[in-house]
C-alpha cells in the first residue's frame, strides 16, 4: 500500500514504529540530497556510499526517538548524516587538511544561482527561504559558512587553507550564522 500523502515527518514517525515501507519511501525522498552532501564532504564516492548506508541504518535505529515538535525530518536526518561524515573524516585523518587543492571552488551551495536550483528545490518553500537568507549575507560570510559546512574542517585548518586570520574566520562565521538565524526566523 503506497503512502504518497504522508510528509517526511509522518514517514519518519512511521519508520520509528517499524514501518519498513515508510522508511523506504523516506529513503527515496531524502537519499539523493544527503548523498550529494556526503559526496561534497568526503570527496570519495565509495566513502560517501558507505557513510550513506551506515547513516540510513542509524536513521532507522534512531527513528523511534524522532520528535516532530523539536525538528523537521530532513534537518534531523541531515544532522545524523553530517555527524557520520565528520566521524569518517576524523577516522581518515582528513579533518585537519584539505583533500584537494580545488576543493574551495567546488564547495559552493546553490545559493548564488537561480539556474542551479533544481525542480525539487523550487517546490520546497523551506529550501527557497534558506537560499534567500544565504543570499542576504555578505559574500565573505556566505562563502566561509558554505565552505565550513561542506568541508567539515576545524576553524584552524580553514583559516590556514584560505590564508585568513583565525579571528576573521571566527567573526565571519559568528556574524553570518547569527544573521542567517535571524533571517530564517523572519528578521531583517
Amino acid at each position: 500500500m503506497s503512502q504518497p500523502e504522508l510528509n517526511d515527518e509522518e514517514l519518519l514517525q512511521r519508520a520509528g514504529r517499524r514501518d519498513v515501507r515508510a522508511f523506504e519511501q523516506l529513503y527515496d525522498r531524502l537519499a539523493p540530497r544527503l548523498h550529494g552532501l556526503l559526496r561534497q564532504m568526503l570527496h570519495d564516492e565509495r566513502e560517501a556510499e558507505e557513510v550513506l548506508q551506515d547513516s540510513f541504518v542509524q536513521l532507522w535505529d534512531r527513528a523511534p526517538s524522532f520528535d516532530p515538535a523539536r525538528s523537521q525530518a530532513f534537518t534531523w536526518a541531515a544532522m545524523i548524516f553530517r555527524h557520520k561524515a565528520i566521524d569518517r573524516m576524523r577516522m581518515l585523518g582528513r579533518r585537519n587538511r584539505l583533500v584537494e587543492s580545488a576543493a574551495l571552488e567546488h564547495s559552493v551551495l546553490d545559493a548564488g544561482s537561480d539556474a542551479a536550483a533544481d525542480a525539487e528545490l523550487e517546490t520546497s518553500e523551506r529550501a527557497a527561504a534558506v537560499r534567500e537568507a544565504l543570499r542576504e549575507l555578505p559574500k565573505d560570510q556566505r562563502q566561509l559558512i558554505e565552505f565550513a559546512f561542506l568541508k567539515g574542517l576545524t576553524h584552524h585548518v580553514l583559516a590556514e587553507s584560505l590564508n585568513l586570520p583565525l579571528g576573521t574566520v571566527k567573526t565571519h562565521i559568528r556574524l553570518g550564522l547569527l544573521r542567517l538565524c535571524d533571517l530564517l526566523k523572519g528578521g531583517r
Partner: peptide, 16 residues
C-alpha cells in the same frame, strides 16, 4: 545548529 544543517537543503542532489 538547526540553522546550519538547513544548508543541506541547498546541496545538489545526487542519486545513490
Amino acid at each position: 545548529e538547526q540553522v546550519a544543517v538547513e544548508l543541506a537543503r541547498l546541496v545538489t542532489p545526487v542519486e545513490p
